[in-house]
Computed example of a mutant assay.
Amino acid sequence: MPSFLLVDGMALLFRAFYATAATGQFMINSKGMPTNAVQGFLKHMLTAVNYFSPTHMAVCWDMGSATFRNELFEGYKANRSSAPIEMVPQFDLVKEAVEAFDIPNIGLPGFEADDCIGTLAKASSTASSVSILTGDQDMLQLIESNISVILLKKGFGNYEVHNPDTFYEWKGITPRQMIDLKALMGDTADNYPGVKGIGEKTALKLLIQFGSIEGILENLDSLTKTQKAKIESAVDMLHLSRQLAEIKCDVPVSCSLEEAAFQYDREKVKYMAQHHEFKGLHRLL
């Protein structure tokens, strides 16, 4: 069975950028272009390729900051500062680098990379075993028998791979319940509140007991007085938070296995690496 690796481009690119930017290593080439994020991205991607040996690959990207979630909730991700100046030219550069490997770059204005990944993962999971490479735990909701999530840990080549069994062992709930978990707790990174005063521990306990947000709302009288009061005062926000937390798996993007077959021309990659002065890439090929 083909193995399809879907890469969360933004997660890898930002991780790579901040790993070196902290010490001022922007790796500026002779054309004055910073390349630290792209070089780190390629190292993450190729290390995973060498480790997991996928037969097919695609990389998904955010396309601009505004998505349908901002229309649902004005404050969505409003706490994010704009990308550092050294990062900006690397958004196009990284796509050029991915293209040199003949890997499809996929993104859709109005949606997040997560939505593209979710859509492609569900569409491909009957004909291939799908793995999602990311640092973002939001993706865990996509896990199914044929879809696993590879979480990047610190450094390069350190992975935590989750399937339905390992996820259940870890959290005690199913991947789909992850959406309700996020709706209850809120998400400070994405800037939506969920239910104020309910953290992961309480949210997990309630979901294990009642199964879903509906189950909790039907059993408010079984909760402690404080829990009941917190949830009752936030019912609308709870439903909205669930809409924000859920990855859309039906957005209009597609990528056939044929298009995603992973084989590249070494000379083309070598030329791209030399042109942009990427050092050390040859060691990963």
Rank of each mutant, 00 (worst) to 15 (best):
T67M: 07
E71A: 11
S124R: 08
A78L: 06
K95I: 04
A22K: 14
H56G: 04
F101L: 15
A123T: 08
A58G: 06
A19S: 13
P34D: 13
S124W: 01
K95Q: 14
E74L: 09
F73N: 02
E86V: 03
I85D: 14
M57C: 07
E96K: 14
K77R: 15
N105A: 04
G32R: 06
F101N: 10
S124F: 01
D102W: 09
F91Q: 06
D114R: 05
P84N: 08
F101K: 04
I117V: 14
M27V: 07
S128A: 15
M87K: 04
M63Q: 13
A58K: 01
G24Q: 01
G110Y: 11
A48P: 05
T126F: 11
M27E: 07
N29W: 11
L120V: 00
A58W: 01
L108V: 09
T119Y: 11
A58P: 05
G40T: 03
F68D: 07
D115R: 11
Y51H: 14
A123E: 12
K77A: 09
P89S: 02
F68E: 07
Y51D: 15
I117P: 04
G110K: 10
R80I: 01
A66Q: 13
V49F: 15
L46F: 15
S131K: 15
A127T: 12
L46E: 10
A37M: 01
N79S: 13
R80H: 06
M27P: 00
A97I: 02
D102M: 11
S82W: 05
G118A: 05
A121Y: 04
F111C: 03
K31E: 03
R80D: 07
N105D: 00
S124N: 14
A66S: 12
S65Q: 12
A19I: 06
M45G: 05
G110Q: 11
G64Q: 05
M57D: 05
A58F: 02
E71C: 04
V88A: 05
R80W: 04
P34F: 06
S124P: 08
D92S: 13
E99S: 15
V130P: 05
T67H: 05
S65V: 13
E86N: 12
R69V: 07
F52V: 13
A21F: 11
G118N: 02
F41E: 01
E112G: 03
I85W: 04
N105F: 02
F17V: 05
F52T: 14
L42V: 03
I117Q: 02
G40M: 05
F41D: 00
F91A: 01
G107F: 06
Y18V: 01
S131N: 14
E96I: 09
V94A: 08
S82C: 10
P89H: 03
I28K: 02
